[in-house]
């Protein structure tokens, strides 16, 4: 009995301790987090152009994404391009978000001033997003998508690109959030090669500062998708 106590018990305790440690380390090993997919970039185009003169010509095409950019250099390619892109890159809820704003905007255009128009577009967007949020509340995936869209919109609306920005530049940022939605860290994962451009992207995130929508997410969703995530910035709509 003594023998089992002096040998068996310490052995069991030792093995247990190490097993728990290894399990803890392997399960909680920090992972590099999901990239918020290609979705961010089309929105970048929309919001940066939102000043009204630009808005008019650009809102007309049904797929607002890459069209403006592709149109300027090569008009021939326009019909095939926009179609595959929404399908590939945007999950179903996002497509609806994107397709809705263009419908109302063309109508009020003649009567409204620039600022009114911009305000209208924004409220429209918000309304659509709200509807989205409530509709999607059931499923985790669409919840995540909605919050991603909100974050993206918030960042993009504060993004002012430097004059040195060129088509084809890509900056990839990693953003760290805490569960309240506050941004606690921004770092450049992949530089665009242009410091001014990188800095503008960072300061857009810093100016956004806080994404209150994140606080409504379930903790496990937050840990999975928003504790660390990546944002891609590219100035797709530039004409030069």
């Amino acid at each position: 009995m003594d023998r089992t106590f002096y040998i068996g018990f310490p052995l069991a305790a030792t093995v247990l301790l190490h097993a728990v440690l290894i399990a803890f380390l392997t399960l909680r090993w920090p992972e590099t987090k999901t990239v918020i997919a290609a979705t961010p970039k089309p929105r970048a185009i929309q919001a940066t152009i939102i000043s009204a003169e630009q808005l008019r010509p650009k809102k007309q095409p049904p797929a607002p994404k890459a069209t403006p950019k592709k149109k300027a250099p090569a008009p021939k390619k326009t019909p095939p391009k926009p179609k595959p892109q929404p399908k590939k890159q945007a999950p179903p809820p996002d497509t609806t978000v994107k397709q809705k704003p263009p419908e109302p905007t063309p109508e009020p255009k003649p009567e409204f001033t620039e600022t009114e128009l911009a305000a209208l577009t924004r409220t429209e967007m918000d309304a659509v997003l709200d509807r989205e949020t409530t509709a999607a509340a059931g499923t985790n995936a669409s919840m995540t998508d909605t919050v991603a869209a909100v974050i993206q919109q918030a960042v993009v609306s504060r993004w002012t690109r430097p004059p040195s920005a060129r088509n084809g530049m890509v900056a990839r940022l990693e953003i760290q959030l805490v569960p309240t939605g506050d941004v606690v860290g921004v770092s450049v994962l992949q530089s665009s090669g242009n410091t001014a451009f990188d800095r503008s992207a960072i300061s857009a995130v810093e100016r956004a500062g806080r994404f209150p929508e994140v606080a409504q997410l379930k903790p496990n969703l937050f840990e999975r998708d928003f504790r660390r995530f990546q944002l891609i910035f590219r100035p797709e709509d530039l004409r030069y």
């Binding site: 002096y6 310490p10 052995l11 030792t14």
Partner: peptide
């Protein structure tokens, strides 16, 4: 592992 084994054993 060995040192933890001995630690627990000595403790007892």
């Amino acid at each position: 592992v060995t040192s933890w084994y001995m630690i627990v054993q000595r403790m007892i």
